[in-house]
Structure formats: structure tokens, C-alpha cells
Design a protein around this nucleic acid. Structure first.
Lengths: 342, 342
DNA sequence: ACCGTGGGAGAGAGCGCTCTCAGGAGGCTC
DNA sequence: GAGCCTCCTGAGAGCGCTCTCTCCCACGGT
């Protein structure tokens, strides 16, 4: 069997080499590489030609050692990776994040803080290994996040429900409004006994959607007591649906706080022979791929999750650039996508 | 609004500082940090105490500049991020990968090569920014992967179907055996008109499963012509199922090359009033969460995707350590998980 | 007593870049 | 035409670590 040891680029050209080829000094090449405006056009061209000829690629390590900027940002996931990425919302958030980052020279480091309660991840972030961090899928009680404060700029995906000493910067969707929007739609289509499959009780986003649900019902003078919590999975949604059916035989509509749970609920309803939307109308949340999996298109609240990812990056880049007046709250709005289920 | 500029750790302690505190030289501290055996026990302890007292964390950039090892490895995804992570198989693969990596000092860089045909990603990997790479979700025709050869050690998740000049190292599941296993199960339970919802025609894994399917049918003397390709999504599966139903009214079993597609197929069958497994039996592939979403538990072929991720890391670490006899083919076996659908 | 021998520690030269500072060449002003 | 700017460019000192080379010292053999 042949040996398979790989070797890094042999003798990758350095700044020095480019400088020599272009007949200028190292400093000038550095200026060109970093887009300094104070280099004569002719020189810029000469340097760029040399760079192209030699196939020069800046050495990240050297650069970051000299500048104490790493040009990498952490995607901090305080959760099991497979669960995180298995959620279409986060998958799409990460997609937006990556796409926005692709134009920059920043690189994404996946930092997972699942079983150690943040120690390793915190040390990594605080250890100056990244310029900034985007924290997603944080739950209430993730207090280790406090240890990140004051180290590097941090942007949260979703408002953090952790006692932080400074006002956190976050991007979030207006979950309360989203829950209200969905529920309002059910009310307006004449439903009167409306239940909800809410998300986990330790997640602010879930609670906000629930609050919106309740507000809409209160405003309409309808009862808001049919609530079951589930864990944002399809099987959880199916089970919650069964619970709701057994508890409230009169229910005619359900607002599910995620499409995945709604798809589970649809399955549960189908197997009970309940017609959707005839007997029971259902509105989901996310506009994820799950919304169109079934035969019945799911009416749902679209969260611009990709946009959120991109926004998180934008905000972080502004912080990194030293922009002083970056808004702390970056709220994106939801919209209703009407399909068949309600 | 307060200014939110973050600052990296002020005056993080350096090797120098630790050396001074411990009363030894920089070199000795370096030895201790890197676990060199040639330092006296007493000295090791003194240094470790100093490290703990000062809260010293090695500077990655400096270390990698000096050693030309970056201690980071790339997770190269030549695909849209959201699609990639939306697939439970990959989500779980990444989970295994991360979990295995957590014990090491390596860090994962997410490198996506979606729209640019590999240029930026290739330059990143070749540019000496990572010590090695794990390439996943590659399709046939991703020839830019050839440009990675000879740069750093690479491990593929799934056998690459690209003309490489050297024998690639990969971990893979025995897809042919998996397809055979599933189909065999259907045959043994007395089904005679068995169709398959196959995966994309440009993915080796999908083709191997199809080959296993065909072999099982051939061995049993049954027809193997009921084949529809779909794209590994639930909606694709639903559509494929409808196509199959219209083409082969006599079919009594389906092997779906992924659970996600199978769940779509189940939905399609349910809406047509076809009883599962009474009228049509169905076997999925992956044993992903999707297998237990519905009311009907999906009989499926379990791929140890997490194990595969972990194995990919193991193999890569061995390559990085210069291990000469690393096997090129690392095949893990599938097993049948029997639930309700077949 | 002499010379090896070898383990353990220090010295010091980089790794490839950034960034401050200094200085040269022109172009202005009066 | 002297003096002063302004605009560009070069020189050179690090950034924090690794790693080779050298040195020191204790020990053993003869």
C-alpha cells in the first residue's frame, strides 16, 4: 500500500518573493495585498502581476500573528451538532451566514460546546483564536455565555435569555408578531377553538410565539388554554397533536411553532382520519422544506432564516470594523405563506 | 447607544511570561506544553503551575507560523450548505466528526465550495491554511477535487467518483450490501413486485444501493425494472412514489434509498389510501429521525453515520501523524432496523 | 584521574507578515 | 529659489512560538 502522507504546498511564495519579482519592498506588496489606497497605480499593477505570476497566497498564520487579527469567526453551537443541523431553520441560517461570508476573507470555525459546559469553547474564543463569534441555538440557562463577554464581539442568533452584564447584539425574528400573525389568520378564517403546539419552554423564541398566539386569542375573546409543548421535532409534534386531540375534542385549528412539528401533527391527524383543513386547520412556522413535503401544502409563517444568517454576519463585520453605532436589536419580520392547510 | 467594540484578551500571557514565572527558559515551557518526554518531573510541575496561575493559552497563529502546522482541518462541502446540513445523514456525520475532534486540539473549518467551482476553496486548502481536509457530499463531476491532490491529506466521506491520479482515502458504508439487505428483506417477506426510489444518478452511493437492489432481485428471479430516481428529499420521494404508482399498478413493495424520500413516499401512499405495509411494504435507508416521524415506524437500513464521521477523523489524524499504512478503503457495515413499514 | 556518554536545559535563529517611522521626490507658496 | 507640505515607498522591529544546536553536568568505565 502506498504511503499517503500529504505535503503542504512546497515553498509557497512569500511576500518577499513577490516584492523581489515586482521590484518593490515587502511593505509595498503588503499594502497592495491589503488594498491600501496610498500606492501608485502603476506599482499596484506591477505587484498584482507578480502576485498572479507566482500564485501568491498570503499566509494566514503570519498575518494574524503580526496583526493580531485572525480573520476567522466562530460559529458557536451550544448543542448537539446533529440536532442543530438537522433543524432546517438552522441549516438555512448557516447557509445565509456562509453565503455572506464567502465574499469576505473570513473563515468560519465550527465550535461546538455540547458536553463540556462551555469550558473548551470559551477558552477557544477567549484565547484570541477568532475575531468574533456568532452564537446560535442558545437556551435559557446557558450561563457560560457570560464568560464570553468582553473577549470578542459577539452576535447572537435569537435574543439570548441569559443574564449578561452588557446589552447583547442579536438578530432575531419578531416571534411574537409571527405567532400573532399565524393565529390571527386562523381566527379570521372562522376558527374558534384554536390550540398550539408550542416549542420548548426554555427557548425564548418559542415563548414569544406562544405569547403572540395568546395575544391574538385574547384580542378575539377566544380561550387560549389549549397549549402543549414539544421539542421542535416531527415526532414531538405528532405526540403533541395526539395529546391535544385527546384533551380538546372540539378543536378546529392548531398553530404549530415549527413546520417540523406541524408535519408530525399532520401525520397524526391523517392517521386519525381528521381532515385538514376541513376539520382542523393548521398553521406552521418556518416555511422550511417540511412545509411542502406532504400532499397538503402547509400554511406557515416564513422566517427569513437565510437573511438572518446574512444579517448576523453583516452586523458582526460592522462590529469588527469598529463601527460604534451598530444597533443591538436587529429584528426581521415574518410573513404568512398561505398554502392548503389553513 | 453604547459602543460595542469588543477587545481581544488584553495582554494574554505568552510563553515568555510563563517561562519567567516558572524560572525556566521559553524552550522548556514549549516542551512541557507539547508534552515532550525529556523534561524532569519537577520542572514539568513547576511549569504547569505557572501555566495554570497565569491562565496561559498558546497562541495558535504563532504556533502555526513556527511549526507550519495549523491544527485545523477543513470540512469541505461542495454543495449548498442548507441542503447539506438539512440532510440528517450529513448532520449526523458531522456530529460524529465533531465529537471525535473534540478530544484533540484540532479545529474544524467549514469550507463551502458551492458557486465558485472550487477555486476559492481549493486555494484555501492548498494555501496551507489547514493540515488536512474531509470532503463530503461530492458528486460525480466534481473534478476540481483533483486540484487538491498533493496538497494536504484528504479523507473522503463516501467513495469519490472523480478521476484522481492517486488512490483516494475514504470511509464509506457498503451501499451495495445495504441495498441488497433491504431488498432481500422485502423478498423474504413474500413481496414479488418490488420498486425502488433511487437517489440521484450522479451520486455513487445512490448507484451502489441501486446495484444492490438489482442484484437481490436478480438472485430471486424477480423483475428489477421499477426504478425512479429522486433527489434525496421528501418531496422528491413523494413525487417519485406517485410516478411509480401510476407506472406499476401491481407493485407491492418499495425500497427507498433514503428515509427522507421514504417519508415523502409514505405521505403519497397515505393520501392515495394505500395501506402500508398491507398493500405496499416500504424500506428506507439511513435510520434517520425521519424514520420515526410518522405514525408508521419505517423499516430501514441503518447507516452508522456518526461512526463514519468519527472514522473519517481517525483516519485523517493517522495520516497527519505520518502513519504510512492507513487503509484506503474504510468500509462500515449497515444493518436492518425493522419497524412497521415492512 | 581521564575521557566518554547521554540526558536535560538554554540560546537564538527564524516562520511570513504588519505597521510605525523615517526619508526622498516633487509641487506649492511667498 | 528657499522652505514647507504632501504623497509614496523603504527599512526594520517585532508578533509568539518551534526547533536545532550547543552546552552543562552527572555518571560510568578504565
Amino acid at each position: 500500500m502506498p504511503t499517503v502522507t500529504g505535503h503542504p504546498e512546497r515553498h509557497a511564495p512569500t511576500l518577499e518573493a513577490v516584492a523581489e519579482a515586482a521590484g518593490v519592498s515587502r511593505a509595498t506588496v503588503s499594502r497592495v495585498v491589503n488594498g491600501s489606497p496610498s500606492v501608485r497605480g502603476a506599482v499596484v499593477e506591477a505587484v498584482q502581476k507578480a502576485i498572479a505570476d507566482l500564485g501568491y497566497v498570503p499566509n494566514r498564520a503570519a498575518r494574524s500573528l503580526a496583526s493580531s487579527r485572525t480573520h476567522s469567526i466562530a460559529l458557536l453551537v451550544p448543542e448537539d451538532v446533529s440536532r442543530f443541523f438537522g433543524d432546517p431553520y438552522f441549516a438555512s441560517f448557516t447557509g445565509g451566514l456562509d453565503r455572506r461570508l464567502a465574499d469576505t476573507e473570513y473563515v468560519l470555525n465550527l465550535v461546538v460546546a455540547r458536553d463540556d459546559p462551555g469550558r473548551k469553547a470559551v477558552r477557544y474564543v477567549r484565547g484570541g483564536n477568532v475575531d468574533g463569534a456568532i452564537v446560535v441555538s442558545h437556551h435559557r440557562g446557558h450561563d457560560f455565555l457570560r464568560q464570553l463577554e468582553g473577549s470578542v464581539p459577539i452576535v447572537y442568533g435569537g435574543r439570548p435569555d441569559v443574564a449578561l452584564s452588557a446589552e447583547p447584539v442579536f438578530v432575531d425574528v419578531d416571534n411574537e408578531a409571527g405567532g400573532h400573525l399565524a393565529t390571527r389568520h386562523l381566527i379570521e378564517s372562522g376558527r374558534t377553538r384554536i390550540a398550539t403546539i408550542a416549542g420548548p419552554e426554555d427557548m425564548p423564541a418559542a415563548l414569544d410565539r406562544l405569547a403572540g398566539f395568546r395575544r391574538a386569542l385574547r384580542e378575539a375573546g377566544l380561550p387560549d388554554d389549549a397549549v402543549v409543548h414539544a421539542n421542535f421535532t416531527a415526532s414531538g409534534g405528532a405526540e403533541a397533536m395526539r395529546t391535544l386531540l385527546s384533551r380538546h375534542s372540539d378543536l378546529d385549528a392548531v398553530f404549530s411553532a415549527s413546520d417540523l412539528m406541524a408535519s408530525g401533527a399532520l401525520t397524526a391527524l391523517a392517521s386519525r382520519g381528521v381532515d385538514v383543513p376541513g376539520d382542523v386547520a393548521i398553521v406552521g412556522y418556518d416555511d422550511s422544506p417540511a412545509a411542502t413535503w406532504g400532499e397538503i401544502g402547509l400554511t406557515t409563517v416564513r422566517q427569513p432564516s437565510e437573511l438572518m444568517g446574512a444579517t448576523a454576519v453583516d452586523v458582526l463585520l460592522r462590529l469588527l470594523a469598529g463601527d460604534a453605532d451598530v444597533p443591538h436589536e436587529n429584528i426581521v419580520q415574518t410573513e404568512l405563506v398561505i398554502r392548503d392547510s389553513a
